[in-house]
Amino acid sequence: MVMKVVRFWMPAAILVAGIVLVVVRGGDETSLEGCAALWGAGLSVALLNWLHRMGVSGDRSRAREDEARAYLARHGRWPDDAPPRQGS
């Protein structure tokens, strides 16, 4: 639940705050600059979240590879290979 807030709702709230700023101040130059700053911040948070998720997914792939190599060392075959037929 907390990760959904950080990954989706926080960047969305920052982006919406930029729009609200423009609407409340009537679209003057200062509000547009503030909106641009908030949008930059919101998009930065979203990008950092995405980069973090990409890094974590690589860790899972490496863990699966390590488990498969340990299985190979114990059983002499790769985990998703068909087991050798008995009696032939």
Rank of each mutant, 00 (worst) to 15 (best):
L72R: 14
R60P: 00
L47E: 01
G55H: 09
V6W: 10
E29G: 01
D28H: 07
L38H: 05
G76D: 06
G42Q: 03
L32H: 12
A41V: 15
S61K: 15
S57W: 04
R53M: 08
G76E: 05
A73V: 00
E67P: 01
G76W: 02
E67F: 13
I14F: 01
P79W: 05
D66W: 05
V16I: 15
R7L: 09
W78C: 07
R74V: 10
V56K: 15
M54E: 14
N49G: 03
E67L: 13
M1L: 07
G87A: 14
R53A: 15
R74H: 08
A36W: 05
G18H: 09
L43C: 09
G87L: 13
A41Y: 12
W50T: 06
P84C: 03
W39M: 09
T30E: 14
F8Y: 15
W39R: 00
G34L: 02
R25Q: 14
A63I: 10
V56E: 11
S44Q: 08
C35I: 00
M54C: 10
D59G: 09
G55D: 05
R77V: 07
G34I: 02
R77I: 10
A68M: 06
V5C: 03
W39S: 06
W39E: 07
W50R: 08
R25G: 01
V5K: 09
P79S: 07
H52I: 03
D81K: 04
A17C: 06
D80I: 09
E67W: 13
V5W: 11
W39I: 08
R69D: 14
G55F: 09
A17L: 13
A17H: 05
R25I: 00
V22P: 00
W50K: 02
E33N: 13
Q86C: 08
F8Q: 07
R62E: 12
D59F: 12
G87M: 06
D66M: 11
G40N: 02
G18C: 08
P11Y: 05
V56Q: 12
A13K: 01
W39H: 09
P79N: 04
V23E: 11
